Simulated scan of single mutants.
Amino acid sequence: MSKKTKLSKNQQRQIAKNRSKRLNTNITHASGRPEDTSSLGELIDGRVISRFGKQAIVETTSADRDQHKCYIRRTIKSVVCGDQVVFRPSTTLEERDRGIIEVVIDRKSELSRPDYYDGLKPIAANIDQIIVVGSIVPALSTHIIDRYLVACEHARISPIIVINKVELLTNEALVQVEKDLEVYTQIGYRVIMASCVSQAGLDALSSVLKDKVNVLVGQSGVGKSSLINQLLPDSQETVGEVSGNSGLGQHTTTAAKLIPFSLGGELIDSPGVREFGLWHLPVQDITQGFVELREYLGGCKFSDCTHRNDPGCLIREAVELNKINNERYQSYLKIVDSLEQNRPAYIKE
């Protein structure tokens, strides 16, 4: 028997207010049509396992783990995959009837990305671990990995780096790539070299996924769906190919969904993004996102140090002494330089 979610006083008041409106008026929900309350059951706990348009699929937290299609109250700001919710299921089997999500429980963690039109947009909630997937094809970019790591650090969610499609490398090339990626293990990140063809690294990846809620992020075409199909054969993810013209991957995931892992734990697969936007973050947060820079912060000669050619800059001095990897440092500067360039005009103003 699952433990009943304890609602805050504000959440209880909101549910009571919604109920009062339903009793006195013919209100509408997010679908835009009048709500028929006669088909709604009592409040129960659930978790969002998929979100599409103005609807979501909610799975009960009880042992039976029933799934219900639900509309979302207009008063709820956002609902994303992984959210813990309180909802009223439909009591009929009619296709037109849907349950209603009444409350989203406070999130313990949230992964968001900036949107030029909608501002900061949550894409997954209550995550334990982020799997940052890169691959040999499209060309391996440590700068893109660095951008994802900054986002992970900002969200305070532990990342794991996975480099996919290593079967395309010669033995010599593989050794070189592993050497290039040593900088990440040296600063505390776990790196897994993987292949869906040779099965390399899949056991190690299965192990880190176990008993955690994980989200996969990475550019399109890096093989996220192929990895999911290998680890979770019943998921039946659509696999795309890398474009011969652009060298970029084709989007294959169209809606975020939570997929249970047979050995324990779950994966949240969200639509791929080619580059993780960071323009909404202040420079100080970018600096904090590079974990190896933190011990030097606050020690520079000037409080407004840009960590470039400023006199008395401890970070620049550490780079020159090889205490900080120069490529990571250059990646940091590149991200900082891109902030103003990529920030929307309405924010610049």
Results as ranks from 00 to 15, higher is better:
Arg98Cys: 05
Glu172Cys: 02
Ile105Met: 07
Ile187Asn: 10
Gln84Trp: 04
Val166Glu: 00
Asn309Thr: 11
Asp180Cys: 13
Ala30Tyr: 07
Glu349Val: 00
Val104Thr: 10
Gln288Ser: 10
Gln12Ala: 09
Ser39Gly: 01
Ile136Thr: 03
Arg316Asn: 15
Asp66Leu: 13
Gly289Leu: 04
Val197Gln: 06
Ser90Arg: 12
Tyr148Ser: 10
Phe87Tyr: 13
Asn325Gly: 13
Pro138Ile: 04
Gln14Ile: 08
His251Leu: 10
Leu258Cys: 11
Ile44Gln: 15
Lys165Ser: 05
Leu293Gln: 01
Ser158Pro: 06
Cys305Ala: 13
Ala56Trp: 08
Gly223Cys: 03
Lys69Pro: 06
Ser195Tyr: 11
Gly201Pro: 02
Asp203Val: 02
Ala124Thr: 10
Arg74Ile: 03
Arg294Glu: 15
Thr28Glu: 07
Phe302Glu: 09
Leu321Gln: 15
Ser62Arg: 12
Lys6Val: 11
Arg98Phe: 08
Ile49Glu: 14
Arg13Ile: 12
Glu275His: 04
Ser141Gly: 11
Gln288Thr: 12
Asn322Val: 02
Gly46Gln: 09
Glu292Ala: 06
Leu174Gly: 09
Thr185Pro: 03
Lys212Trp: 08
His143Tyr: 14
Thr75Gln: 09
Glu295Gly: 03
Leu43Arg: 15
Val191Met: 02
Asn24Phe: 01
Gln219Met: 01
Arg22Asn: 15
Ile187Lys: 11
Gly223Asp: 05
Ser198Trp: 06
Val215Ser: 09
Asp66Ile: 06
Asp106Cys: 05
Asn309Pro: 01
Asn326Ser: 13
Arg65Asn: 07
Ser135Arg: 12
Arg96Glu: 14
Thr92Cys: 04
Val183Tyr: 07
Asn171Asp: 07
Tyr184Asp: 01
Gly119Asn: 11
Ser206Glu: 14
Ile144Gln: 07
Asn342Thr: 00
His251Glu: 11
Ile160Ala: 08
His29Ile: 06
Ile192Cys: 12
Asn325Ser: 13
Glu295Pro: 01
Ser246Met: 05
Asp118Pro: 00
Ser220Pro: 03
Glu59Asn: 04
Ala30Gly: 14
Gln284Ser: 13
Arg74Glu: 03
Leu149Asp: 08
Lys9Arg: 14
Gly134Arg: 01
Arg316Asp: 13
Ser112Thr: 05
Asp234Asn: 14
Gly223Ala: 05
Ser303Gly: 07
Cys305Leu: 10
Lys179Ile: 04
Ile144Ser: 02
Val217Gln: 04
Ile192Pro: 12
Val162Ile: 05
Gly249Trp: 07
Leu168Ala: 08
Tyr296Phe: 13
Lys9Leu: 15
Pro34Tyr: 10
Ile15Ser: 15
Ile286His: 02
Cys300Ile: 03
Ser198Ile: 11
Ala173Gln: 14
Pro271Asn: 10
Cys196Phe: 03
Thr252Val: 09
Pro271Gln: 08
Gln129Arg: 14
Asn171Leu: 04
Leu267His: 00
Gln12Asn: 09
